[in-house]
Amino acid sequence: MEAQDGTQQQHIALAHKLFLLTHPDVDDIEKVRLRDEVLDAVKTRDMASLYESLAVASVLEMDTAVLDRMRKRIEDELKTLDDKIADAEENLGESEVREAHLAKSLFFIRIGDKEKALEQLKTTEEKTVAAGQKMDLVFYTLQLGFFYMDFDLISKSIDKAKNLFEGGGDWERKNRLKVYEGLYCMSTRNFKKAASLFLDSISTFTTDEIFSYDTFIFYTVLTSIISLDRVSLKQKVVDAPEILSVIGKIPHLSEFLNSLYGCHFKSFFSAFSGLTEQIKLDRYLQPHFRFYVREVSTVVYSQFLESYKSVTTEAMAAAFGVSIGFIDQELSRFIATGKLHCKIDKVAGILETNRPDAKNALYQATIKQGDFLLNRIQKLSRVIDL
Rank of each mutant, 00 (worst) to 15 (best):
Q378Y: 05
D113C: 08
Q364V: 10
T141K: 07
D214E: 11
G132Y: 00
L228N: 01
M135W: 06
N258F: 09
D63M: 03
T80H: 14
L380S: 09
D136E: 14
M47K: 06
V97E: 05
E37Q: 01
A13M: 07
G145H: 02
N175G: 10
N354S: 11
Y284K: 09
L228Q: 03
D357V: 02
A336D: 04
G370W: 13
Y213R: 05
E330N: 11
R176V: 09
R110T: 09
I74M: 06
R230I: 10
R73S: 12
L362D: 14
F268E: 00
K134H: 06
N91V: 10
L285N: 01
I327R: 04
T215P: 01
Q278S: 15
K17Y: 05
C263G: 12
I350Q: 15
L60G: 00
S201G: 03
T141Y: 14
A319K: 02
D208A: 14
E89M: 10
Q4K: 15
Q8H: 12
G370S: 04
E306C: 12
K174G: 10
M186A: 06
G182Y: 00
G168V: 01
E330F: 07
K79V: 14
P287W: 01
D28T: 12
L228R: 01
H264F: 12
A86D: 11
L164V: 09
V42D: 01
Q235H: 14
T223G: 05
I367W: 07
D214A: 07
S58H: 08
S297H: 03
E52T: 15
A15K: 00
D36E: 09
L244R: 08
T215K: 09
D214F: 08
Y51E: 03
A271F: 06
I324A: 12
V26A: 02
S155Q: 14
L281G: 06
L386P: 13
N354C: 10
D150Y: 01
F147T: 15
Q235L: 11
V56N: 05
